[in-house]
Structures are given as structure tokens and as C-alpha cells.
């Protein structure tokens, strides 16, 4: 339960309330992690929260987190200046099924800040491009100003992933789709053997899973990153229970067919 100090090397503002922080272990260690895993992180004394790692899994020296300021703990982390120490435990959790995806088409479906936990998966897939079939990223956000990783999306296109981005509403300078992610899924005409990785608000994931099913991608080929109140990250505190599972240990990545029964129960 003892955290390690990580120094902020760089801060990038992504949107009005979201920052990407690049960190390095103050003691000079490395953190090997799998795409989809998270750390428990705090800025001295303001509370510890789970944040998915959003960095490149091939780089073990740099720890990257994309954090949204929604309260005291996240606010303190977002405000950490270059050179400041943050306190980190991890990595924890079940990762995205990159191995299971080999030889198949992969659809990455992201909503809002949900693109952050999927970024390591995208980088992992692109880093071994020849192992996979068609790669497509379907990404939805609130508005063009709330989209993450803007310039990188173009770079990903060039490395071999189709990228479709939609927003809930936009001004006239936006030339792309306006509408919901399920609409992108429908138009993507995915092949039935596709493996899908979903991350975003739970409602958006539910509707996206429905749209995937209608496109012939069944629930056992869909994997979603779930979220619940997490305080310890190590299956001790009991807060992150989702039915019979503990999100920190049995997730955050779940096979949708295993979740459906529980996400359908109100207030579970």
C-alpha cells in the first residue's frame, strides 16, 4: 500500500478540464504495464484516485496519465506543476485483450475521456500492425473542443487505423459527423468476426454494445472498461463491487457477455 513518488516531466492541456501528465519515477525505476491497466494516484494529501494509464506500453520509463478535473483529488493532480511529485501505486487491473484480437479486425469504440484508457491499446495494435486485420477507431465527444489527442488522430490514420470522430453538436467549422457513436458503428459496416474494445460513459457503452450486436459483433466479442468507486485498487476496500465482481481485480476490462446480466439490474 506504499506509494512511490513520480515526478511530473511535462504537462499538456487537452481540453478545458483535461490534462495529460508525463511522469517519471523519482527513484529511477520503470513501470511495465499492460494497456487497460490503471494506477492509484494522488497529489500530496488531496486523496487518491484510480486513473487509467494512457501512455505507450512500449515505453516503461515514462508513466503517462490523462486526467479530468472533476473534484479535489483530480483537481490537485491536474494542477501539479512540472517537477512536482505525485504518489503512485500500481499498475492494477485486467488489461485489453490484445492477444485475443490477433488475426482479427478490431474496432476501438471510445466516448469522451474513454479514449484515454484505449490509447495504450491503439499504440499496442499499431506497434504490431501486421498481426491484425482492419483497425477502426470510432470516437465520440461532446464538442470539437472536448476531443482528446487531436493531432495524434491524424498520425494514427497514417499508421493504419481508420479514424471516425463524431460530436454531440458543433459549430459550422466542424466538417465531420455530428451524432452519436452508435451511428458511427452502424456506418462502419464491421465484419462479424470483429473484436471490439469499448470505453466511455456507461450509457454510451450500453448503446454501443447494442449497435455492435446489430452489426453482427456479439457480446462475447465486445470488451468494455468499467468504472466504479475505487479506493484501494487491491480488492480490499470493497467499494468497487459490480455484482459478483470487483472492478479493480476482475476488471476494469470485462467481456461484455459477462457483464450484461449485471448492468441490466438497476442500482446494482
Amino acid at each position: 500500500m506504499t506509494p512511490a513518488g513520480y515526478r511530473v516531466l511535462e504537462r499538456t492541456r487537452e481540453t478545458s478540464d483535461t490534462w495529460t501528465l508525463r511522469l517519471r519515477a523519482a527513484g529511477g525505476g520503470t513501470m511495465a504495464f499492460l494497456p487497460g491497466q490503471f494506477t492509484m494516484i494522488s497529489a500530496g494529501g488531496a486523496g487518491e484516485i484510480p486513473i487509467s494509464i494512457s501512455g505507450d506500453p512500449h515505453d516503461e520509463e515514462l508513466l503517462v496519465h490523462t486526467v479530468r478535473d472533476v473534484g479535489p483529488a483530480s483537481g490537485a493532480i491536474c494542477a501539479a506543476a512540472v517537477g512536482e511529485l505525485l504518489w503512485v501505486r500500481g499498475p492494477f487491473g485486467r488489461p485489453w485483450p490484445l492477444e485475443e484480437a490477433e488475426g482479427r479486425d478490431v474496432a476501438i469504440v471510445a466516448g469522451g475521456i474513454g479514449l484515454a484508457p484505449l490509447r495504450p491499446a491503439i499504440l499496442g495494435l499499431l506497434g504490431a500492425r501486421e498481426r491484425y486485420g482492419r483497425l477502426v477507431l470510432l470516437y465520440g465527444g461532446r464538442s470539437p473542443e472536448q476531443l482528446l489527442y487531436g493531432p495524434e488522430l491524424e498520425a494514427w490514420r497514417e499508421r493504419g487505423i481508420e479514424v471516425q470522430v463524431t460530436v454531440d453538436s458543433a459549430g459550422p467549422e466542424w466538417l465531420g459527423p455530428v451524432g452519436v457513436v452508435p451511428g458511427l458503428i452502424r456506418r462502419a459496416e464491421l465484419a462479424p468476426g470483429t473484436l471490439a474494445m469499448l470505453c466511455g460513459p456507461e450509457v454510451m457503452m450500453r448503446f454501443s454494445a447494442g449497435s455492435l450486436a446489430a452489426s453482427g459483433v456479439p457480446a462475447h466479442s465486445v470488451h468494455a472498461s468499467m468504472e466504479r468507486n475505487m479506493q484501494c485498487g487491491i480488492a480490499h476496500c470493497g467499494h468497487c463491487q459490480l455484482g459478483p465482481t470487483l472492478v479493480c481485480r476482475d476488471g476494469p476490462v470485462y467481456r461484455w457477455s459477462e457483464l450484461e446480466r449485471w448492468t441490466a439490474v438497476r442500482e446494482l
Binding site: 494522488s42 500530496g44 494529501g45 488531496a46 486523496g47 487518491e48 479506493q231 484501494c232 480490499h236 476496500c237 470493497g238 467499494h239
Partner: peptide, 10 residues
């Protein structure tokens, strides 16, 4: 019953 909360204080 084992639920705990983990809290930081200063």
C-alpha cells in the same frame, strides 16, 4: 464485513 475507506488527511 471488510469494507474500508482509504482517506488522505493533512
Amino acid at each position: 464485513c471488510f469494507c474500508t475507506s482509504v482517506e488522505d488527511t493533512t
